[in-house]
Amino acid sequence: METFVYRPKGVCSQEMRFEMDGDIIRSVKIVGGCAGNLLGISRIITDKKISEVISAFEGVRCGIKPTSCPDQISKALLAYAAEHDIKVN
């Protein structure tokens, strides 16, 4: 297991902390943002493959913002995959 920390941009949340087991998300803790929604999202993506989550979350917008917390989660997972040479497509 490895902890991966990501600082999202353009959203209310300030930090995303992932517990990773290779290409599987074991847990996620998100600081800031809409607490209930992000807790629900964290529970939904626990024990999922990163490729599944990226596919579902990439490009999701929050209102008029060009990004959202789910989109930032996909960006975090893409960064993790690149850093660990994990293919996501």
Rank of each mutant, 00 (worst) to 15 (best):
D85S: 15
P8I: 01
G22L: 04
C34D: 11
C12R: 08
P8Q: 01
E2S: 12
D85M: 09
F57R: 01
R17C: 08
L78D: 14
G63R: 00
R61Q: 14
C34Q: 09
A81L: 04
V88L: 12
L77G: 10
S74W: 05
T3V: 12
P66V: 11
Y6P: 03
T67F: 01
S27K: 12
L39V: 12
E15Q: 10
I41Y: 12
S68Y: 09
S68R: 08
L38P: 01
I41F: 12
D85L: 10
E19D: 11
S42G: 11
C34V: 06
K49G: 13
A56D: 07
G22D: 13
I45S: 02
E58F: 06
E83G: 12
A56R: 02
A56Q: 04
L77I: 07
L77Y: 11
E19S: 11
E2C: 04
L78G: 14
P8H: 02
V11H: 04
C69D: 12
I50E: 09
A35T: 13
S13H: 02
R43V: 02
S51C: 07
E83T: 14
K9L: 10
P8C: 02
P8V: 00
C69P: 04
H84Y: 07
V53M: 02
V88W: 13
Q14R: 12
P8N: 04
E58N: 08
S55Y: 09
G33L: 05
K48E: 10
K87F: 15
M1V: 03
K65S: 15
E15L: 02
V11S: 07
V5L: 05
S27I: 11
N89D: 15
G36V: 01
N89K: 15
G22H: 09
I30G: 04
P8D: 06
G59Y: 01
N89E: 15
G63P: 00
V5T: 14
K49Y: 13
D21W: 05
I73G: 05
K29A: 11
L77H: 10
V88Y: 14
F4V: 00
P70M: 05
D71G: 03
K48L: 04
I25K: 10
L78Y: 11
E83P: 06
K48C: 07
I45Q: 02
V60Q: 06
E15K: 08
M20K: 04
V60F: 02
S74M: 05
P8F: 00
D47H: 07
R17N: 12
P8S: 05
G22E: 11
H84G: 03
N37F: 07
E58Y: 09
E2M: 08
Q72R: 00
Y6E: 08
D85P: 02
K87C: 13
H84M: 04
D47E: 13
R26P: 00
G40Q: 04
D85V: 04
G22K: 10
P70Y: 05
S42Q: 03
L77D: 10
V11T: 14
A56N: 02
A56S: 08
I44M: 12
F4Q: 00
G22W: 03
I64H: 12
C12S: 11
F57V: 02
K65C: 10
Y80C: 07
M1N: 03
C34L: 09
I25L: 09
L39Y: 13
S51P: 00
G63S: 00
Y80Q: 07
D47N: 12
K87Q: 15
P70T: 06
T46V: 06
T46F: 06
V5W: 00
G10E: 03
